[in-house]
Every structure is written in C-alpha cells, then in structure tokens.
Write a protein that binds this DNA or RNA. Structure first.
Lengths: 342, 342
DNA sequence: TCACCATGGGACATATGCTGTCCCATCTGA
DNA sequence: TCAGATGGGACAGCATATGTCCCATGGTGA
C-alpha cells in the first residue's frame, strides 16, 4: 500500500496535499467545534481564504455544516474521518510507523497521531479522539463494564468520548483502582463520571483514602459500598489506562521521599495501574491499593493503553514487556519516533 | 476498500475523475506508442488541449517521455500502470466485479478490463496487456516452459508481450496442441514464435496435419521431431490459453458437418484445448489431437485463461466447472457482466 | 440587559491553472 | 522526396483558488 501512493502522486500531483489539508481541517473542526474560519486558519497556519474554499467544498459534499455560531462536523464528516484515517496514515508515513511499533512492542494494534504531546497540549486531545474512534470500532456491542484509570491523558480521552459510542451499547464505568492521590480533576472517579455522562452510561465511584498498610486495606475491603465496587471491577471486560513515567508519577502523586528513593534504587522507569516497573518490565514496587492489577488484563475483551510524548517512551517500551499481546496502543509521533529510532 | 473512496471523493471531489482520465491516457499510450496528442485525443474522445495538459503533467513526473515521433511510456510509466491497476479497479467498481467473478467461478484470481471485445476490437488488446502485467507478476523466475494455444485472443496476447518479462526468466514457448485447423495467422505455432521473439526466448513448433484417426496419431507420435516437442509439452509448467464458444470454434476450424451435428446434439457450449464441453462442464467431444488436455493443468505452476466478450460468457462459465481452482482469468466487462447479472 | 467579539457571508482584484483552437517548424516513414 | 503526423508556441476565455477587505448578526459573558 505504501508504494501505491507514490504513483497516485505521480499521476495527480497535489491531490494528496489537498486531501491531507482538508483532512486536518476536519480533525481540527472536530476538536474545536463550533469554530469559525478565522480561528481555523490561525490554528492550522492557513489563510482565511483557503480555509473558506475548503469549507465551501466540504459543505457541498455535506461533511460539515455552517451555523451562525460556527462550523460543525456532520455525521458524514465523522464517518469520513474514521474511514480516511488509515488512508491518511499511509500517506503521511504514520502507517509504516504504526506497523513497526506494533511488531516492536507486540501490540494487537496501534494508532499514532502526529505531533508530540510533550510539546503541544492539543495532541493529547487528538489522542483522545483517536481513542474514541478506536472504541467505536472495537468495543463489543451490548453491556460492558469499563475499568478506567486517572491521569491527564485519561482526562483527555474522557473529554472526547461521544454519545455515538453508546448506540448499541450499555456502558458502566468504574475506576480501575482506588484514589491514587491524584488531584480531583484527573482522578479516576472524575474520569469515570465524565465518561458515563458523555455516553449516557452509569458509573460507580470508589472513594478510598490513602492506604499505608495492608491491614487497612483488608478491613476496608469489608465495607459494603467498597466491596460492591470492587466486585464490579472484577467483572470489568474492558480496560482503558495510561502509562506514566515513573518519576513523574511519583512526584504527581506526592509519594513519600522514602518510596521515591526505593523507585530510584530499583531503576523504575514506568508506572501503570499503580505498579512501577523497570526497563525490563519487572515490577519493582506496588502502590498498596485495591482494584485492578496488570495481571487482570488477561481476562479482558479489550484493553486500550493511551500514552504520548517522547518523555514516556522508556516507560511505554518497558511496559509492553508485561501485558498480554492484545493491547491496543494509542500514542503520538513523538513517543513512537523515540522508540523506533533506537 | 470500496467505501473508502466515497470519502476521498467527498473530501477532494473530481480528483478521482482526473486520476481515471490520466490512467486511461497511460493505458492508451502503452497500447499505441509512439503516438501524438491528436490521435490520443481522438481515441479517448478528449480535446487536444486536455490531453496536452495531462501529458505535460505526466512528463513532469516522468511517466511519459516526448520524442519527435510521439509520446512514449517510460519505465516508471509502466510501473505506474501496474501499481495503479488495483486502485483504479476499485474506483471504477471493476474490483468488486473481479472478486465476485473470482468466487463465482472459483478462480485463483481475476482481471477484468473495461469494455466488451465483441464490440470493440481494441479491448482484446487491452486484455493482452493485462495478461502481460499478470505474467510479469506471477511467472516464476528462472526457466519456464510455456504451453500456449492459438486463437485471436492468444494472438492479441502475443502482440503485447514485452521484453521486460524476460528480465529474470528464460522462457521456452511451445504449442499446447498440434495444429488445430486454424488459419496460420492465429495458430499456436505462430503465437509461440511471436511470444518467443518478444521475450528473447525459444520456441518449438509442432507441425501436424489434420488427424482423423487415432491410428494416425499413434504412428505420428513416433516421429522424432514430434516426439521431442510432445516431450517438451509434457514438461510445460505454465499454460496460457483461451476459452471459445463451441459453435464459433467449430465453424472457425471448419469442422465437418457430422462433428458439428454431434456438438449440437450434445449441447456443447464451449471449447478449450480442443475439448468441447456442455454447460455443466462435461466434456462431450474431443478433437483427436496430440498434446495438452485440460486434465494436464493440474500439474502446472501457473495457468492463465484469457477470454472476453459477452458471447463467450456461457462457454467461460461452463469451463470453470472443469479446471483446478488455480487458474487466473483475464476477461472483459462484457463477459463478466453477462455472467454476474444472472 | 447590553456590549463585545467571533461568526458567516459578500465583494473584488489577482493569481493560477485548465481549456479550446489556432499555427508552424520539423521529423518520420513510405 | 513528400505527405502526414509530430511536438511546441501562442493566445483568449473560463474556472477556480487566493489574499484581503468589510459588514450585519447572533451568541455569550459581564
């Protein structure tokens, strides 16, 4: 498929440029709708007029609609993005990187969005939308219990979940683990609530204080409210989570100096589900928490990992030495390049 | 893949038209090179200027070259045609018909060119070029012995064989069967000679008179020159042949009224390798000839059948109830439609 | 409620590319 | 040698794309 486009380009040059330009326009509209010509032009570094011609064309073919408050993506526009994604990935060479990363990390499949979320904050949002697309295609129909984690990346995913996801599905969201010391805005409970809201689904919170001893967790496990949620987690068939850089996570969760020192000593590079691992994928420290562990992913129908930014490359690369080979990864070019260039 | 193009078209309308126009331009150049703008314009029902703009573009990208005697296809142009073929087949809907026909007839694969060779004589030539493309991709490297049949279709294939076929191959052509009463221009010996010439290969003729008795064939088989050729035929690993309408073939070969009556009585619809069969693929009459039979195809590495025109539909459909499922078919839209519409 | 700002739409000159239609010098092949 | 086909030049007309304004308006936050 890769070579094919070379010839298309030779026969109708600049068709691909135009296609890519309009595709990125569609993406940007989806991300910021409702939005006006001038904002779009600025964001995409195009002139107002070219944006306008493109919009007029897309209006003709019904992919966008113009309202007094700005441009909106139509349902057809949504579908177009979904259908054009692999094609555009081909054109930009991302497709090649996707297959490379897939084999390199042993993934079920892989989606790479362009950019680097360490540099531009909107890339995280694009990853969120990619996650939404993926879920729409991969989430089994019917009832599902979705275990999710917290974090800024997961919050971005939650922001973009659309109601169309719930068309043939009844979704229940549940935090994969108890409160992990994150700030309220990005903790799993908040993410759950937001996802449930967006998809007209249900959610169940898991309010847990910081745990310091195994004793406390054993007694807490008896609490009816908590036991019920833990039971739900045990029945989750879908997991969406992120992978974090070890030190960044330790700092964000304000872990004690003692624990941090342990992490350093044991060369922890990444974290997922509260488990810290070194570059060989060996778990070197577990945050004492209730809920899902990496090993529970085996029994899931669908596992989606979302992580981007070159700073997380080492973490992600190490992480995928652990989980079953059925995980989907959604990442960005910054991270992908960092892993592949080695 | 089929749906994808709908969206490409929605995002960049009329690019596909242009792509198709230029592709057909390339095809026409290949067919008639060296050729001038005006001839091309006339043949493709375009204006001179349009052809010129397209040619200029193709010149820029190096797919064609302009000489004082006309336009030539470059090597890149050749490659472009080859690589764009499946894509264009998608766009025109031919691809869908190809897969349909493939499953319907139980083929290894199938190439359909647009048009109907019963209506336009140049369609046969296009099929020949398609055959050339297919051989270039499928013919095993190294030495091959290619058994070919006669007929106008095979003659068209022979016309278009190109030297590039022989890049990594040494080819020997041999008539699959003895002279079948065809006129010299289209008989297998001539076709062989022409193919060998085009590919810098060898060929071995098989000159046989009309045979009327099995006795004669047995004695002829002893003749050293004939025995040698027959031995070569036995070692053929590739076969290229056509499928004919039963009555048309009987007439062309000036078969006796008696035999023709037999064919009618037994409801023969088609012919291949001198074997006539009815609509169920049952062989109802064998021309007493020396050489290859349909059953010998089993041991071949590659079998290509070439037949087009709606009038041959019944014959082709019946034929593919006989041979192994590894045959490639090259046909035209007229024939494909006739089979598929039922 | 009001004011402001971003919105879509209109307008226009300009640039670029495509089209139709000539003519012409030149090359080719019979 | 010569007739016919070749590529290239030229030009006007047309369509589309582009850059740059301005304007009325509607939604939103103060």
């Amino acid at each position: 498929m890769d070579l094919e486009w070379k010839w298309v380009n030779a026969v109708v040059p600049k068709m691909t440029q135009k296609l890519l330009r309009r595709y990125s326009l569609l993406l940007m509209i989806r991300q910021t709708q409702p939005v006006g010509r001038r904002s779009l032009a600025e964001r995409l570094a195009l002139t107002e007029r070219t944006v306008r011609t493109d919009l007029d064309s897309l209006l003709d073919t019904g992919l966008v609609s113009m309202q007094t408050n700005g441009v909106w993506l139509t349902d057809d526009g949504q579908t177009a993005i979904l259908n054009l994604q692999p094609l555009v990935a081909d054109l930009t060479g991302l497709r090649k990187k996707e297959t490379q990363l897939k084999t390199r990390l042993g993934l079920k499949d892989c989606l790479i969005v362009s950019g680097d979320s360490d540099d531009r904050s909107d890339v995280k949002q694009t990853m969120g939308e990619a996650a939404n697309d993926l879920l729409r295609q991969q989430l089994p129909a019917g009832e599902s219990v979705v275990a999710v984690m917290g974090g800024t990346t997961m919050a971005a995913v939650a922001e973009t979940l659309s109601a169309t996801l719930a068309d043939n599905r009844q979704l229940t969201f549940v935090p994969a683990r108890g409160g992990m010391g994150e700030s309220p805005k990005i903790q799993a409970n908040t993410v759950c609530a937001r996802m449930a809201e967006a998809t007209n689904g249900h959610f169940q919170a898991l309010y847990l204080p910081e745990l310091s001893s195994k004793l406390a967790s054993t007694s807490l496990r008896q609490e009816p409210a908590i036991a019920q949620t833990l039971d739900l987690i045990d029945h989750a068939n879908v997991a969406i989570h992120c992978v974090g850089d070890a030190m960044a996570m330790a700092k964000r969760r304000q872990m004690s100096a003692e624990v941090t020192a342990t992490l350093v000593n044991r060369h922890a590079v990444g974290e997922a589900f509260g488990d810290f691992f070194d570059q060989n994928g060996q778990i070197v420290y577990r945050v004492p928490k209730l809920g899902l562990s990496i090993s529970d992913l085996d029994r899931m129908d669908l596992v989606v990992a979302v992580a981007g930014g070159h700073s997380k490359a080492a973490a992600v690369e190490a992480y995928f030495k652990i989980p079953p080979a059925k995980t989907f990864l959604i990442t960005d070019e910054g991270l992908a390049d960092m892993i592949l260039k080695k």
